[in-house]
Computed example of a mutant assay.
Amino acid sequence: MNVKILADSASDLSKDHYNEYGIEMIPLNVHLDDRAYADVNEIDPKTIYDAMRNGKAPKTSQPAPEAFKKHFMACAEKNEPLVYVSFSSELSGTYQSAKIMEDMVKSDYPDAPLYIVDSKCASIGYGLVVLHVAKMAKAGASVEQIIEAAEYQAKHMEHLFTVDDLEYLYRGGRVSKTSAFVGGLLKIKPLLNVEDGRLVPIEKIRGSKKVLGRMIELMEERGKDFQHQVIGISHGDDLERAEQLSSMIQDKFGVAKENIVIEMVGAVIGAHVGPGTLSLFFSNQPNK
């Protein structure tokens, strides 16, 4: 019996990925104009970015715990193994909600093969972890192999990202009002990382033209063996720059184009980072 893989919409994977590898997905919620939308299913990221450009400030919320219970119960009743790889517990409460529902379901089905892994990752960095184990599950890997791989891939996933406007990070409490104002005035572009699930500033770069080159330099410093892994790029409605970054990676490291996944930053994460965001994801210690 193949292991079911469950993810949430903060993985920023496309519907094609979910369908091809049989990944089940739980949507987080996006609130816009006094209405809540289920991410991916009821709203697309382009709608959110256009709204933000027009001065609106969408909010987000985690899934209702019942959404997890539904998936967990379905597998518990059939004694079907399921691994939920979650969005970073430091950035959302989805992991905690899932753990509560896991305990509730296991009170009735104590031997249910339900497992939860905190990816400590976000966006396509998280998505690459999910894709890796989904491919393993499709090939018939065991629960133990999948959990070990998910934890390993998550531990070694590097996140590098920049935003076009610090105002959105200020609204989310990630930078001070003064930093946002001065950054905008001086056209400062921050580079950030995710460490142990938390957003951590790396450095500030003056001028957007220098950002891509610096991302490539940091990629070379922090990563290795790029030709034997899948590279992820996500963008806040800026496909042109994402493709430019992809071309630079291909030229610099000899990575095949088909080994680079490019997706738009989804509505949930996009609501916090804003249009023009550009993110790069790779492993610093890929498996062979």
Rank of each mutant, 00 (worst) to 15 (best):
F281H: 15
D12W: 02
T60C: 07
I231V: 13
S97K: 12
F161C: 03
E77W: 10
L212Y: 13
Y37W: 01
V211W: 12
K46G: 07
K70P: 00
R35L: 13
S142K: 03
K252A: 10
V268T: 06
L186R: 06
V129R: 00
V268R: 00
L82R: 01
E77G: 05
G197P: 01
I249H: 09
L239I: 15
I231K: 08
G172Y: 00
S107K: 14
Y95W: 08
D44P: 03
T60D: 02
K78G: 09
L192C: 14
I48F: 04
Y49H: 04
D103Y: 10
L245T: 08
E102G: 04
P58G: 00
G276D: 05
T178Y: 08
V133D: 08
D16Q: 11
H156S: 03
D103K: 15
P81M: 11
V40P: 00
D34R: 11
Y18Q: 08
N193Y: 11
S61N: 03
R35A: 13
F281T: 06
I188D: 12
S208P: 08
I100L: 13
G270D: 02
D238H: 09
C121A: 15
G173E: 09
S107M: 14
I202P: 06
S179F: 11
M25Y: 00
A64R: 10
D103S: 14
L128H: 05
P65V: 06
S234G: 10
K56E: 10
Y18M: 15
I188G: 12
S234L: 07
I124Q: 14
G127E: 02
I260K: 05
P45C: 02
L186N: 03
M219Y: 05
D44R: 07
M25F: 01
K138H: 11
Y18T: 07
D8N: 04
L218W: 04
A51S: 06
K135R: 12
A10V: 08
P113T: 01
G172N: 05
M248H: 08
F68V: 11
P81A: 01
G55K: 09
Q153F: 15
R198S: 11
V230P: 04
E144S: 10
Y152W: 13
G223D: 04
R214L: 07
M25N: 06
L169H: 01
K15I: 13
L166V: 09
R174E: 00
G93C: 07
R214H: 14
P110H: 00
G140R: 13
L192H: 01
A139Y: 07
G140K: 06
I147D: 08
P286F: 08
N19T: 15
I231A: 02
P63W: 03
E203K: 15
R53V: 04
Q229E: 05
A134P: 00
P286K: 09
K155I: 11
A149G: 05
Y49T: 02
A267L: 03
L128A: 01
M104N: 11
I124G: 01
A112I: 02
F68E: 07
